[in-house]
Amino acid sequence: MSTDAAVRDLLLVMPRLVGRVKKIPVPEQLRGFDLAPRHLSLLSLLLLDGPVTVSELAGRLGVAPTTVSLLISDLTRKGVLVRRADDNDRRRRIVDISAASRPAISQWLSPGARAWQQALAPLSAEQQRMVVDTLLRYEQAVAG
């Protein structure tokens, strides 16, 4: 396949992909929270990886810890997240999805994670890395 043919295919599939993702309904419990894509990334990481520190979240999201702290504070006030002291270091805070919000967040975000797992499963680890790296390069190119 030529690069031009691959670009044509991607230009056709990307709008459909985005459209389908946007059609996934936000659970009733979360509708009034005005969640933005940055919230979804944070919630997805917590859903997939479990409780982590603010610093770990910041590193995984590639943003400053103060930015993550603001997001966490916003979602904690709304009852979506909870913070607790780290048992190993009482100065550090561990962040997690609240028990009350976990079912709704899982219902909402798990289908996307399962779809990626299904799409990537036939690929080798190297091929999976290539897909992720390609999407990251595309994101950078679109951002300018």
Rank of each mutant, 00 (worst) to 15 (best):
S124I: 00
L81G: 05
N88M: 10
M14V: 14
Q29A: 13
L136H: 06
K23H: 04
R92H: 03
R90A: 12
P37F: 13
L17M: 09
R114H: 07
S41E: 10
S55D: 15
R93K: 13
G62W: 04
L71S: 10
L75T: 12
D89T: 06
Q107G: 03
A119S: 02
P103F: 09
P111G: 03
S44Q: 08
S44G: 13
A99G: 04
I94H: 07
G144S: 14
S73K: 14
L43M: 10
K22D: 12
V95P: 04
S2I: 00
E56S: 12
R93C: 00
L12T: 11
L30Q: 07
V54Q: 13
G19I: 06
W108I: 04
D34Y: 04
L120W: 08
P27I: 09
K23V: 00
L35H: 09
R38T: 12
D96E: 14
V54C: 03
R93P: 00
A125H: 10
R8Q: 09
V142S: 05
R92W: 02
R90W: 02
Q127D: 08
L71E: 14
V63G: 03
L45D: 05
T3L: 11
A100T: 14
L35V: 08
S55V: 11
V63P: 02
A121C: 02
P25E: 11
A125T: 03
I94P: 03
V21C: 09
A36E: 15
S41W: 05
V54I: 13
I105L: 13
L43V: 01
I97P: 08
A100E: 15
A5K: 07
L120R: 01
D74S: 15
L45M: 10
S101A: 15
D9E: 08
S55M: 10
S73A: 13
S69K: 15
V142I: 07
V13Y: 04
G112R: 02
L71D: 15
P37M: 09
R16D: 12
L43D: 03
A6R: 14
R93Y: 05
T76P: 03
S41Q: 14
A121F: 08
G144C: 01
S110R: 12
Y138E: 03
K22L: 13
R102M: 10
V52P: 00
L35T: 09
V82P: 00
D86P: 08
L17C: 02
D96G: 08
Y138M: 12
G112E: 03
P37S: 06
S2A: 02
R38F: 05
V142K: 04
L40K: 10
Q117P: 00
L46E: 02
L57H: 09
R77A: 15
L47Y: 03
A85E: 13
P51N: 01
R83V: 05
L17F: 07
L10C: 14
E28V: 10
R102C: 01
T66V: 13
V68T: 15
L57T: 06
L40C: 06
A100C: 01
